[in-house]
Nucleic acid binder design. Structure first.
Lengths: 135, 135
DNA sequence: TTTAAAATAGAGTAAAATAGTCCTAATTAA
DNA sequence: TTAATTAGGACTATTTTACTCTATTTTAAA
């Protein structure tokens, strides 16, 4: 699997936040989407650190979008939510665990790199706007 | 991550088997590629069940390719090695774990399905031959 | 025909990643 | 000043991945 719950929760949350005209707290999002609150909070905090969301503390606080959905890619959202970039295969990026030695020296490596590149490109060109707008 | 060690070991093994003119045993492959033998054996057995490899028991036995590399896709190899189809996201295929309810009813779902389709297509059109032939 | 080399099968274990919890600050609108 | 809310970090539980072990079956070769 390429993506985990973190990305799923992030996308579902962004969808709700996008449609709201005022900040929404993690408590409310948690209830509305049936997602564990503390876990969701971490994800929202990550999105805030990456400036996708802006947070307001204190009473009547919550999260709101901090960026035009057309200016943020799925790649960035996923990277923030997961805390790391999405990869098809560890052996594409790390050579020290490859049984065959360093990356680039095995016959498979260039194809995996190309595959990774295609996935990256797709996710980088897919904007949040495209996901959130109704068809 | 989309793929696991199982796929990595499968591809590396297929590369060695492809270049050999006689069957190679799991023991030899294990040593040559520095992969745990019992674990590798399971993977090779899966590829055999899927008719990608043919096995010969007994002395001087081992595994050989059972199919023309141009006729087998990466998608099939991965599915066999992993024991399941590669997925970007569980929520694309299973609705009962989606916090938002059934699949297809959330705004995100169609985009994930499209993404999954693109990955499937890429892997289905990439043949083992393309991977194994030297450039 | 015996033997040793191999694949097959299935249950079990260890390690790592994912998913989630809990508690304690730090802020801030009301 | 207080209650609502985000922030942060350490911790735990669950699931998946990555393997291991043992026993069985098959078969080429001596």
């Amino acid at each position: 699997m390429l993506l985990t719950r973190a990305s799923e929760y992030a996308l579902l949350s962004l969808n709700v936040i996008y449609k709201s005209d005022k900040p929404i707290g993690s408590e409310q999002l948690s209830k509305e989407l049936n997602i564990p609150k503390s876990f969701l909070a971490k994800i929202l905090q990550n999105l805030t650190k990456g400036n996708v969301l802006v947070s307001h503390r204190g009473a009547q606080g919550g999260y709101a979008l901090n960026i035009d959905p057309k200016d943020i890619s799925l790649y960035d959202i996923i990277s923030l939510a997961e805390g790391k970039k999405p990869t098809v295969f560890d052996c594409v990026s790390y050579s020290d665990t490859c049984p065959n030695g360093a990356i680039g020296t095995c016959a498979i490596s260039p194809f995996l790199a190309k595959f990774q590149f295609k996935i990256d490109l797709y996710l980088q060109n897919l904007t949040l706007k495209e996901l959130l707008d109704e068809r």
